[in-house]
Design a protein around this nucleic acid. Structure first.
Length: 917
DNA sequence: GGTTTGCATGAGGTT
DNA sequence: ACCTCATGCAAACCC
């Protein structure tokens, strides 16, 4: 009961002195029942020496009457009005009107061990009185509870203050009471539990609901706790608004005091249930110092559970169960991997999980939010002079929760039962964002992603919490995710992420500024520790997508011509200026009309023809069409003929589709891009006017515009080389065609020669067109850059020259370009200078003759095919036999064309595709 | 050959 | 300087 104001740890090696101001002792945790005291610093227990004079302790959200031992949940009980805090640190229950005396601790506390002793009725009142009956363990737990309560009280106070609008900027760290304080309490429970061996949680207890509730409550609890603790206010009154001053003062003391070393043998303590301060629903996610646990002090802020008060509140919806947030951890790649091992923070493991002396550890039963119980092997590995704790067999659980690296797993304890509850929070972007922004406030609600502890540190706490949603990505979401459901419903402000919905995460958290600080720290820690995660998670994907998209929009300055650099016989474009962003457009090359650029209005979606050298801004509408007054309004009809429009749209659609797909199958898609360009070009040509060629935008490298057929762009990405037999990417198609072509050629060589001759003859007339086409195709190929578009299709060489500008392209028309596509094998093909023909020529050929050819051969469908899949390989390989060569060689193309049907047919669309060879 | 298990290593963080 | 923990690695184990 009454105790000296100052006590020193009797452990000679510790000697930590603590003062009991207002009944609050720093560095000491009360153990239940026996009145033993644990030194938060060294973990030593002194059963006889130190008595806690103040038993008024209140776990967050819970208050215990020091007189009658009744426990009141502020959430369910109207609150503070029901309680009366005593200066001495005691709490009086207004219902009994008894003075809080010293008594305290007695049994009221509910032992929470892990499933150990349950004090069932946590509900409103628990009679501590029963204490007598309580076993020592129970008592211990109670003690722990007491401690927790104390912490709670502080928290409550803080909360109340917050509620009152007296928010203060507080850094969690500062504000939060030393984890130890709180932790110790809960801590006790765990230990206690462990000792008891009743680790296994008791299944019966309210699972699902409880879990959810718990989570929520936890969140709240934590918050409250953190607050309270942080405050460290001696102020007993929860309801009382705490002055900033007080808080400030409090905070220091509260701050984590000496950390006990894990190594120190700490007596198992019963985990205390942190009662959520129901009354205070804070939506803010706060890193809450662990309520109990011997090692709570030791816990790094990053492991502090971050649960919003709301969450906790909701979780604790069931008055009978209290959720005590224990700790959380951001899953690392290893944790989320298939190994099935979840590395537990040592401090957390030792503080909240049953003590284990053998590496084998013991099975730990943990219930997930859904109420499903999982059994993990809690064990450790000797590591240097320390231990590495792990939970084994977590894969199923993690998978069921769909967790991945970067997501956060939260461990809480459901008090009455002492059952361990596992929650999670989707990190999604969070990780990546951690360091980044505080932002992400959607509709006033910060996205979980935005949860950045650090960010908000300085922010004033909003009384309602609701206002502040900070997304600590990791933190909040985790617990919340589980609770999210409740939260959503309950508080519109905060949307908890359901594990499944990443979206949710964004909103979950409201962080108290004060708490935020710790989070920040935590974030820092996390960031540093899991840098990989940043990239691994969804973020990476997002980034990738963004990048791809960006690529599409990257284009060289229209007015800038690249310089051609030849490296190992390959020409590459070099631009002095960096690429610029612009709206994706489609370039169409018309044999007759030259090149055209088409862009779709962002407003009416109509396609408008633009000068080829125009570079559109990301957002472009008809109104911006300064080049065609007749179509500078969305009301103006579309210029394209139905067929053309259809093709154009199809092309565009394909392109987009490809892009999307590419994101998932980068390798293939990318590869095909160049070919596709040709295909597209061919398609357009087919459709609209035979001569038109459109090239879808694709770009693998910022400097290689869409349509670029350089070896870099055409090559499959390194490491991706595996293409399924059914792969229809341009590369594969090309290869196939080549093969067929070769075969075909061998068979028909002679006959083909003749045919070639004939074709060439035909071609003769075509060359001009080709030239146009080539040039055009180049443009076309590069949607982005008219100039650049060397036909993706193929020839880089040509493309090189072509790449430059349209003009250049035109001029170049593939002369002297090396055809990378050419097969060394195909000596034949390459033989004639035909090889040099280049993709461009192929394109040309393809575009014009192809159609005819296709029609002749019934290939008309090609265009369609292309439409369906630009990369589609023409089934008509047979015919293509010659074609294959085409791909490789311009010559072949010529041949094909010449051959008339053969070459042309495939070439049609395919050719374009093939061209890339 | 693939997976699991246990330990070792070392970067990063904390004291 | 020390501690924690994510990850790598190899032996053991399993299919």
């Amino acid at each position: 009961m009454a105790s000296p104001s100052i006590k020193s740890c009797m452990n000679a090696t510790c000697g930590v002195s603590t003062s009991s101001s207002g009944g609050w002792r720093k560095g000491w945790a009360l153990r239940s029942g026996d009145f033993a005291t644990l030194c938060d610093s060294c973990g030593s227990a002194y059963e006889q020496s130190v008595f806690c004079d103040v038993f008024h302790s209140e776990d967050s959200g819970w208050r215990e009457c020091t007189s009658c031992g009744r426990r009141l949940h502020c959430g369910c009980i109207a609150s503070k009005s029901m309680l009366e805090l005593l200066d001495g640190g005691g709490v009086n229950c207004t219902s009994c009107s008894k003075n809080a005396g010293v008594n305290s601790v007695n049994g009221d506390e509910k032992p929470n061990g892990f499933g150990m002793s349950k004090i069932d009725d946590v509900g409103e009142l628990q009679s501590a009185s029963a204490d007598n009956q309580l076993t020592t363990e129970t008592k211990l737990m109670q003690l722990g509870n007491c401690i927790d309560r104390i912490a709670t009280r502080n928290l409550l106070q803080l909360q109340s203050s917050a509620a009152n609008g007296s928010y203060r900027k507080m850094k969690q760290e500062d504000i939060l009471p030393p984890a130890g304080e709180i932790a110790s309490t809960s801590f006790c429970n765990f230990n206690h539990i462990s000792n008891v061996s009743s680790q296994t949680a008791k299944p019966e207890i309210h699972r699902t609901t409880a879990a959810k509730d718990l989570y929520e409550s936890l969140a709240q609890t934590n918050l409250s706790i953190s607050l309270g603790s942080s405050l460290g206010n001696p102020n007993p009154f929860p309801g009382v608004v705490v002055d900033e001053k007080v808080l400030a003062k409090a905070s220091p003391p509260l701050q984590p005091g000496p950390r006990s070393r894990h190594l120190l043998p700490k007596p198992p303590k019963p985990a205390l249930i942190m009662d959520a301060n129901a009354g205070m629903v804070s939506q803010i996610r706060v890193a809450r110092p662990p309520a109990e646990g011997r090692g709570r002090n030791q816990l790094l802020p990053r492991y502090w559970p971050r649960i919003t008060d709301q969450e906790l509140q909701q979780i604790s919806g069931d008055p009978n169960s209290t959720i005590v947030p224990l700790f959380e951890k951001v899953l690392s790649a290893s944790d989320a991997g298939r190994i099935g091992r979840l590395v537990l923070p040592k401090a957390c493991a030792e503080a909240y999980f049953p003590p284990i002396s053998q590496p084998e550890g013991l099975p730990l039963r943990i219930q997930d939010v859904k109420g499903k119980e999982w059994v993990f092997q809690f064990r450790f590995w000797p590591n240097n002079n320390s231990r590495m704790y792990v939970l084994e067999g977590v894969t199923p659980c993690i998978q069921s929760m769909k967790l991945q690296a970067g997501d956060t797993v939260t461990f809480s304890r459901m008090d009455p039962e002492g059952k361990l509850v596992m929650g999670f929070r989707k990190a999604s972007n969070s990780i990546a964002m951690q360091d980044t922004q505080p932002s992400a406030i959607t509709n006033g609600v910060p996205s979980s992603e935005s949860y950045f502890p650090g960010v908000f540190e300085n922010l004033p706490v909003i009384s309602g919490y609701s206002g502040l949603l900070q997304s600590l990505k990791g933190s909040t979401d985790t617990h919340l995710s589980a609770l999210s459901k409740h939260l959503h419903s309950s508080s519109g402000d905060i949307s908890w992420n359901k594990s499944e919905k990443q979206e949710a995460r964004t909103r979950d958290g409201l962080l108290l500024p004060s708490l935020l600080a710790p989070e920040r720290k935590r974030l820092r820690n996390i960031g540093s520790k899991s840098k990989r995660l940043l990239i691994d998670s969804l973020d990476a994907l997002e980034l990738k997508v963004t990048w791809e998209e960006a690529q599409d929009l990257l284009r060289p300055e229209p007015s800038i011509k690249p310089s051609i650099v030849t490296i190992e016989d390959h020409d590459f474009e070099e631009y002095e200026e960096p690429p610029v962003f612009g709206k994706t457009s489609i370039f169409v090359v018309r044999s007759i009309g030259g090149q055209e650029q088409w862009a779709q209005c962002d407003s009416c979606s109509k396609w408008r023809r633009l000068p080829i050298d125009v570079l559109l801004p990301p957002k472009w509408t008809c109104v911006d069409n300064a080049w065609d007054q007749s179509r500078c309004s969305c009301s103006a009809p579309e210029e394209l003929a139905p067929m053309e429009l259809e093709n154009l749209q199809r092309l565009n659609k394909d392109f987009k589709k490809r892009r999307v797909t590419s994101s998932h199958r980068p390798a293939q898609e990318d590869e095909s891009s160049g070919l596709d360009a040709l295909a597209n070009a061919a398609i357009l040509g087919d459709v609209g006017e035979q001569s038109t060629t459109a090239v879808a935008t694709t770009t693998r490298h910022p400097r290689h515009r869409p349509g670029c057929s350089c070896i870099v762009c055409i090559q499959p990405p390194s490491g991706k080389g595996k293409h399924k037999p059914t792969c229809t990417c341009n590369v594969c198609m090309t290869v196939k065609r080549r093969f067929k072509t070769l075969m075909m050629r061998k068979k028909k060589r002679q006959s083909e020669r003749e045919a070639e001759i004939a074709q060439r003859t035909q071609h003769m007339s075509g060359p001009k067109d080709e030239a146009d086409v080539e040039s055009s195709s180049k443009f076309a190929s590069t949607p982005m850059d008219p100039s650049d578009n060397e036909a993706r299709s193929g020839n880089e060489l040509e493309s090189k020259s072509q790449t430059n500008n349209l003009s250049n392209k035109l001029a170049d028309s593939g002369k002297g370009h090396l055809d990378l596509n050419c097969h060394p094998d195909r000596e034949e093909d390459s033989q004639a200078g035909l090889a040099r023909m280049s993709m461009t020529s192929l394109l040309q050929v393809a575009s014009l003759p192809l159609e005819t050819y296709l029609k002749q051969n019934g290939l008309a469908s090609l265009s369609e095919q292309q439409a369906s899949s630009a990369s589609h390989v023409p089934p008509q390989a047979g015919e293509n036999g010659g074609r294959i060569d085409e791909d490789c060689q311009p010559a072949s193309a010529a041949q094909e064309q010449e051959s008339g049907g053969e070459v042309d047919d495939e070439p049609g669309p395919d050719q374009s595709q093939n061209d890339p060879i």
